[in-house]
Design a binder for these strands. Structure first.
Length: 197
DNA sequence: TAGGCCATCTGGTCCT
DNA sequence: AGGACCAGATGGCCTA
């Protein structure tokens, strides 16, 4: 469906004045759009937020020096936020690279990455438990291999999750499938992602 | 063209 | 006080 080899985005006027080369998102160098220059900043959210407190503080902005100071602080804050988001995106990319069975030419979206990772972890856990329990009749585990403790921990977690899901399901009017369906769900998702749906 | 996804800006809130 | 985190808003790019 989506092939995310996009060309670099245009930079906003503010970014042009504050460019920091070499600090971009890996797959999208010099990306930038949306948002606005600083002066465009007073959006609907401002009026909504905290009963107009932001409006008051803005009115109090007095002489040019203070205004320049606050603009400078805002620019620095924007840069930090950009860096933070770049780190977050790097972490997403690292996660994509360790999720197997995904077509290489299709970049997973963030939500796809998280969903697949979650179910991949669950399927691996189930696999480990299956292997270890079949190897350990009566759940007597010699040595450091994954044994009863892991098994018990897993099932304790499952019980807790089921209870939470039942409560949430009752509140939301939905039902959740059983834990042993993780592998099935993971396979289904991979299949659907491959199909591009 | 609509809808999905994304990067960025921004102000509020939390944390150190 | 200042930085980190969060979430809403905005607009660009891409695909069906």
């Amino acid at each position: 469906m989506k092939t995310k080899n996009r060309p670099p985005r245009r930079r906003t006027p503010m970014q042009d004045t504050e460019a920091t080369p070499g600090e971009q998102t890996p797959d999208r160098p010099q990306s930038g759009s949306g948002g606005s220059e600083l002066t465009k900043g007073l959006r609907s959210r401002t009026a909504r937020a905290s009963g107009g407190r932001g409006e008051v503080s803005r009115r109090r902005q007095g002489s040019g020096g203070r205004r320049e100071n606050s603009v400078q602080r805002r620019l620095e804050s924007n840069e930090r936020e950009r860096q933070r988001m770049h780190k977050l995106n790097n972490a997403f990319q690292a996660l994509r690279e360790v999720i197997p069975h995904v077509r290489a030419d299709k970049k997973l979206s963030k939500i796809e990455t998280l969903t697949l990772a979650k179910n991949y972890i669950k399927s691996l856990t189930a696999t480990i438990l299956t292997m270890s329990s079949s190897r350990l009749p009566g759940l007597e585990a010699p040595g450091p291999a994954p044994g009863p403790k892991l098994y018990q921990h897993y099932h304790y977690q499952q019980q807790q999750q089921q209870q939470q899901q039942q409560v949430a399901g009752a509140m939301l009017g939905v039902t959740e499938d059983q834990p042993q369906g993780h592998l099935q769900r993971y396979s289904t998702q991979i299949h659907s992602f491959r199909e591009g749906s």
